[in-house]
Design a protein around this nucleic acid. Sequence first.
DNA 1: AGTAGAACCTGAGCGC
DNA 2: TGCGCTCAGGTTCTAC
Length: 295
Amino acid sequence: MPELPEVETVRRGLEPAMSGVRIDRLEVRRPDLRFAFPDRFAERVSGRTIVGLGRRAKYLLADLDDGEVLVMHLGMSGSFRTERQDVADVPGHFHHARSKAAAHDHVVFHLSGGATVTYNDPRRFGYMLLVPRAELAEHAMFRDLGVEPVGNTLDAAYLEDAFRGRFTPLKAALLDQRIIAGLGNIYVCEALHRSGLSPRREAGTLSPARPRKVAGARATQLVTAIREVIAEAIEAGGSSLRDHIQADGSLGYFQHTFRVYDREGEPCPTPGCAGTVRRIVQSGRSTFYCPRCQR
DNA sequence: AGTAGAACCTGAGCGC
DNA sequence: TGCGCTCAGGTTCTAC
């Protein structure tokens, strides 16, 4: 489920409840998610204070006061929800009753002050790790990650370099976390549509044979589209947080309207384009695009 | 080396 | 109502 904007939205939603807060007890309700939990996981996390909550690509990073980082990945179906039981008598404050455990509630953070944060993940493609802060950058999960899509390091010249000589389709190249870290199936489709580039085009065709000082127009368009799509989605996530979090305390899903994703058969939303959104399968995954305006 | 496909797991939606 | 099939926002392992 979550791509970078969703993970960032989850981070922002959890931060007020978790940052600077002590974990009185970590409740681990099964032996594994995608991987087995770390040795003595519950014991090592219980009693720690969360110094700060960060994010890298699609990973959520909780800095603990003993120098370790609790690394959390939400896989396809992971989500968090926050609940607190100590605000019932605050006038005007929404009260989240402490609910019973739902199906697929795998990890519960019992926080000082009485709030809980629950990780739910039906498909269990998510996972949690404990990594010493100093070793994080060299950890197998992080060392090969590419640049963040919104940030100074992503620019057209970088993309041209990364794509040079590659025959793989643009769709696959953009999903490759070693080049840009954090994009997923939805936002790749959206960015390609906005930039007028076909998902089937060979990645190397965006790169001039030799590096140039001034990057080409197509790579520039693509970079602009990626940054816009991600920034807008994070903004939309922020809005949904403000509207939504108090109602049910759940984090991980928010409503979005996409221009092409999951819109097979609908008219292409590009102004003046009479095309129809088409669905194809590339390396086993759905791609939505307009064959008319995406070249 | 680089790329496609299967695998991991559960649930939702659809046609019959 | 129920069965069987396809599909799902991610990553990793295997096989050409």
